[in-house]
Amino acid sequence: MVPILQIQGVSKRYEAHQALNQVSFNVPPGSIFGLLGPNGAGKTSLIRIITQITGPDEGKVLFEGQPLQPRHVQQIGYLPEERGLYKKMKVGEQLVYLARLRGLEKADAQQKIKAWAERLELTTWLNKNVEDLSKGMQQKVQFIATVLHEPRLLILDEPFSGFDPVNANIIRDEILRLREGGCTIIFSTHRMESVEQMCDYIVLINRSKKVLEGSVKEVKTVYRTNTYCVEGQGKLLITSPDFKVISQKQAGNDFSAEVQLEPNVGSNELLRYLLDRVEIHRFEEKVPSIHDIFVQLVTQPQHG
């Protein structure tokens, strides 16, 4: 399958500041793709290149196999982190305006606005001025404005900021529903738990370079440390050289421990070793969270 978006060796410089340095990756169609990185890593610069607000100094961006062109603006929806609306404009008119700028016909836009307003319970607000809306409401309006023209690719920068948990869930469900409908979503956020929950693939950019790429599963496999959590009853005493005890707690007759396996040692061997000695209530691989991986990669000293 042709990736919906191919980033090929993209570099961008602002004066003395290198914003992007030879970044390449592919975004598979129909996925939710996490674009991660600390503040100032170059995420916004990259998004602005994809949305054609700026162009790359070097490298290419392909949309469905073709070099990015102005007409692709209609296929892309972008919800920036710094977002706002015209305050003195009516919600309905504003949505029509933004949709028409994306190439929608007026009647078509009005019909779609009606449908979306009903879904997100905004119908009564369409005739109000934007400044009369609460922040959460405005965020909903912005979300509608982003998806109204039914883009093939949706770029969401911190989509959940400003939402209470209930509304955040509503928006999350809408995002998942759009994905079901065949939309690809690039998702840029600092909230690792929502990455874990929603993303199929991630790319991590740090100091203008790509440092990690892959499906969430693959990444976690790569960064697994062969560590297992064990809980149960009995006195745990591990003496085998195959296992390394990272931490251990004993409370009366109950124990809990984290045990790391030496290379070439399987989890079954640990299980077998424990079976003879204690009663096991819990045995689970300690999988690194995306959060852990992120922190580990971003804080480790730079090489070269």
Binding site: I53, Y78, P80, E82, R83, L85, K87, L98, R102, Q142
Partner: peptide
């Protein structure tokens, strides 16, 4: 006004 209301990034993407 457009700058302070942060509408411009939405606008310039279309």
């Amino acid at each position: 006004e457009e700058k302070t209301s942060r509408i411009l990034e939405v606008m310039v993407s279309s």
